[in-house]
């Protein structure tokens, strides 16, 4: 047991090292990207309506009079202290903006993913159980279509369908600030429905297809026949022996497609003006708010790296074979 724990730690340690490497690479890449691009740092001082303080802070931040190496060093040093610069948009520190946005993103993504997973398990199990039937074909066609639909478009379709019934965007109604707790809660939930549903539906397709395929393969395994020979009921075999094993490829899929999941966040948040990381990127692009864009990209990279670690840990928890 202890040796397998050591091995798990070693595997995770190696992943951590790769993740750290990627983060540093993105940080350094960020530095050069924003320096080499046309309309580079020299123009940053010319941000429209920049106050003298902002201009000075920018010049200080970018150390425009120093050598590239010195600038890089200063930049990385600032980064190490969590200083991502000042947003052009609201003149607040980027780090503080991103923190608020990250919290909002998580409140949208987590319920969305859970809903997608629940839907995928329900329909995936049913389709695998009725493999080859008309309902199997129909459920797979729906999943494949969901997989093909662009998130921003699905968001607009749902907005159209729910217009007048649910709020079109934002995270809460500012006019309810003084209202009771219950009214605020209802308002928050109403704002969450469309973004969460859209997000759940666009990630659902791939989840369902992978789960169904792996379940069909699992149902032909020897241990399923053995469980049946032991006299276990179909329901119990399905739940305890088939589903648990069939979830493993789904965990791998989540790990492999975290990048795609992030893309969905950007599109869905943009459609519903959900003030998360995705909308920060949308606004930063439109306002040419480079510090925010840079910071959001870096933060998303760190989020992806950390999510990969979580997925690895989850996989080795679910599959004892990986541990040794």
């Amino acid at each position: 047991m202890s040796t397998s724990l050591v091995r798990t730690t070693a595997v995770l340690g190696r992943r951590l090292a790769v993740g750290a490497l990627v983060t540093v690479a993105v940080a350094v890449g960020n530095f050069f990207l924003f320096r080499l691009a046309p309309g580079n740092a020299a123009n940053l001082g010319l941000v429209p309506n920049a106050s003298p303080e902002l201009r000075r802070s920018l010049e200080r931040q970018f150390g425009l009079d120093q050598s590239t190496a010195a600038q890089l060093k200063a930049y990385l040093l600032q980064l190490a202290h969590g200083n991502l610069g000042i947003s052009f948009g609201n003149r607040q520190p980027v780090a503080a903006n991103l923190w608020t946005a990250l919290v909002n993103t998580v409140t949208m993504v987590v319920p969305g993913l859970l809903l997608a997973l629940a839907l995928a398990v329900l329909t995936g199990v049913y389709a695998a159980w009725r493999r080859g039937s008309a309902s199997d074909h129909a459920l797979r066609a729906v999943a494949l279509t969901m997989f093909a639909i662009p998130g921003q478009w699905l968001g607009m379709v749902l907005l159209y369908a729910a217009r007048g019934h649910l709020p079109a965007g934002g995270i809460s109604d500012p006019f309810l600030a003084g209202a009771g707790l219950q009214a605020q809660l209802v308002d928050r939930v109403q704002h969450m429905v469309l973004p969460c549903l859209t997000y759940a539906l666009i990630v659902y397709g791939a989840f369902m297809i992978v789960l169904r395929t792996s379940l069909v393969e699992t149902l032909s395994e020897g241990y399923i026949l053995a469980a049946k020979a032991r006299g276990l009921s179909n329901r119990l075999i399905l739940r305890r022996h088939a589903l648990r094993n069939a979830l493993l490829p789904l965990v791998t899929l989540v790990g492999l497609t975290i990048g795609t999941l992030v893309a969905g966040v950007i599109l869905v948040e943009s459609v519903f003006s959900w003030p998360g990381l995705g909308e920060s990127i949308y606004n930063a692009v439109n306002a040419r708010d480079y510090p925010m864009l840079q910071g959001a990209f870096l933060l998303l990279t760190v989020v992806v790296v950390l999510s990969n670690l979580v997925v690895d840990a989850a996989y080795s928890y679910l599959d004892p074979r990986v541990r040794s």
Binding site: N30, G39, N308
Partner: peptide, 21 residues
Amino acid sequence: TDVFLVVPILPLMIVVAALWG
């Protein structure tokens, strides 16, 4: 390849496209 597989691709595309025009 490993590095590019971990970096979130759409945000990277957005950053490059935003800078490039």
